[in-house]
């Protein structure tokens, strides 16, 4: 198993390098002059030239890439001009908040999505199935930012059950209870779409499995129907559900950008949007590379989970 994990980690290196190349290439497309963007249009040509030299922008692109890559490997992601602080510090701090939000949403959508899919498949064409199928359709069709706004309106403004926005109360203790109260609405709003997708896929994976011969064997043994569904069928269906969970983690991470804006959550998505609007390129670059790298590592964890579940995978 350790060997397998090591092998997967090694195979991630080219992917990570590819990501840096793509990000660098996109950023190299930027029209105009970053130095002008930083200094503003009233900057003197001398100042612009000096800044370009300081930033290494007068060098050839390939050289620029390797300098940038080397700096990143050394932990230097540059300094955000709009925040005037190291990119790495800012991204790590913001990413922590995003992880709390997206992680909770991911757990929610995995559990509820799988349960809904299993219940739906077990009652195929029954009322439970129809109800869940419709709810799922609604869930994957509603824009998460609109859902978030409506939830604020109903549960925070009208009913006052939860705070309107933010991660922590402005006054008062920063304890777990406060966090949970702030987390509930955004986590649910973020989880809804992925729940729908996972429920859909779990349903069809379960239907596929329920027709297999080993399900008939379990029934012939006299196993209770609940055992047939939740132990035999679900375990086999997990083989096709787990990769979907990996993909949906990416969608949850993506959706977090909208939810962070709607709920004023101090995460990395909101930081990226602000950075784009302020043309703070170094911050965008650093944020994208770090988040993408974390996602690649997460997917390795998914593969490892898959190999733990399925003994037929050669490790």
């Amino acid at each position: 198993m350790t060997g397998y994990i090591l092998k997967r980690l090694l195979s991630a290196i080219p992917v990570l390098l590819g990501i840096t190349v793509i990000v660098f290439a996109i950023m190299a497309l930027i029209p105009g002059d970053p130095a002008t963007a930083i200094l503003g249009s009233y900057a003197t040509p001398e100042n612009v030239e000096k800044l370009n030299r300081d930033l290494g922008l007068d060098k050839p692109l390939v050289q620029q890439y390797f300098i940038w890559l080397g700096n990143m490997l050394g932990g230097d992601f540059g300094t955000s001009f709009s925040l005037n602080r190291p990119v790495l510090d800012e991204v790590v701090e913001r990413f922590g908040a995003t992880l709390v939000l997206a992680g909770t949403a991911f757990v929610l959508c995995s559990i509820f999505g799988i349960v809904a899919g299993v219940v739906s498949a077990a009652n195929q064409y029954g009322w439970g199935d129809k109800g869940i199928t419709f709810a799922v359709l609604l869930g994957i069709s509603i824009p998460s930012f609109f859902l978030g706004m409506m939830m604020i309106l109903i549960f925070a403004v009208k009913l006052k059950w939860f705070p309107v926005s933010g991660m922590w109360p402005i006054y008062g203790d920063r304890d777990l209870w406060a966090l949970l109260r702030h987390l509930t609405l955004p986590a649910i709003a973020l989880a809804v779409v992925a729940t729908g997708v996972i429920a859909r896929l779990s349903r069809s994976a379960m239907l596929e499995v329920l027709r297999q011969d080993f399900i008939r064997t379990a029934r012939a043994k006299g196993v209770h129907e609940s055992g047939v569904i939740w132990r035999h069928a679900l375990k086999a269906a997990m083989v096709s559900i787990i990769p979907v969970l990996g993909i949906q983690a990416g969608f949850v991470l993506s959706g977090a950008v909208y939810i962070e804006i709607v709920f004023q959550w101090p995460g990395v998505g909101r930081m990226l949007v602000d950075a784009i609007l302020k043309r703070d390129i170094l911050l965008v670059q650093g944020g994208v590379v770090l988040v993408a790298a974390c996602y690649v590592l997460f997917n390795i964890a998914v593969d490892v989970a898959q190999s733990l579940l399925d003994p037929r995978i050669k490790t």
Binding site: G18, F251, S254, V257, V284, V291, A292, Y295
Partner: peptide, 25 residues
């Protein structure tokens, strides 16, 4: 296909944001 896999290794919004960041809103 390697390139495609690479692009799919991103959460899609990061790529979209990077492109908008480069081209401008």
């Amino acid at each position: 296909m390697r390139g495609v896999d690479m692009l799919m290794a991103f959460p899609y919004i990061l790529l979209a944001l990077a492109i908008v960041a480069a081209l401008g809103p």
